[in-house]
Amino acid sequence: MLNLFAGRFDLPLSRDPSTKLLPWIVGLMVYLATLALAGALSLSGLLADWNQGLSSKITVQVMPLGDETGEETQARVTTAIRTLLITPGIAEAKSIPIAEIAAMLEPWLGTAAHVMELPLPRLIDVTLEEDRSPDIEELSKRLAEKVPGATLDDHQFWRSQLFKLVRSLEVLAALVVGLVALAAIAVVVFATRGGLAVHREIIEVLHLIGAHDEYVADQFQRHVWRNCLRGGGVAGALGVTTLVGLRQLAEQLDPALLPTIEVDPWQWGTLILIPIIASLIAMWTAKRTVMRALARMV
């Protein structure tokens, strides 16, 4: 049984220049992978939050027509609400008070009293039933017939664009993690091959006195495991520290400006596993490399 944390080394691997760099390179890879994965994970969380917030809502906008008075517009809003409420799949429809709309526009229009007299568009906040959603297209048509100037926005465009963006970022992050893993594997293969070449004579002696290939491979495996865990562990800790720092920086900003980027406890767990997974992959790579090379020896 392979003992990962103890055991003797018959090959002086720790003195090899080719394997000396291993902890540093693997550390760098682990750091990059940690950041990329953390980015992907928090983006997924963000997307899920937004999606949840938007998918159960639609907004109906009623534009004031020509010289219409406020009361006339309000009457059309009431018609629209009535139309909405008789539609199956709609749980709630309520007009957003004009004062609230004015407040929303305050940064652009100011606080003057006459803002209320401007022909402001009216908004109706519609909540859909959870398990049954209405035929949006049909509803949109019907609404436009009954209430000229009324438009319906189910945020579909916004949602699909957002979804595409976040998915692309996630794919990018996965790609980064994948490339980093490939690069790390290549580094381990080269370091192991270097070690095999440097210690060819010793390996031959080990063979001639009756050592199995596994015995030799075991030496490389344990060496690579330890070095990768050392470099990867430090880098993983640095990665997590970086993330915590970033979060604290983000918290100091106005929370209203930024959507909350949260990393769940289990996601933290995944991040902490990166160095261990990387070291296991490296160890397995070293074993395969050694076994393949030794199979070519007598």
């Binding site: 003797r8 018959d10 080990l206 006195i209 009756g210 050592a211 015995y215």
Partner: peptide, 8 residues
């Protein structure tokens, strides 16, 4: 000298 025994 221990090597041949260790590998076993």
């Amino acid at each position: 000298v221990a090597l041949p025994l260790r590998i076993t």
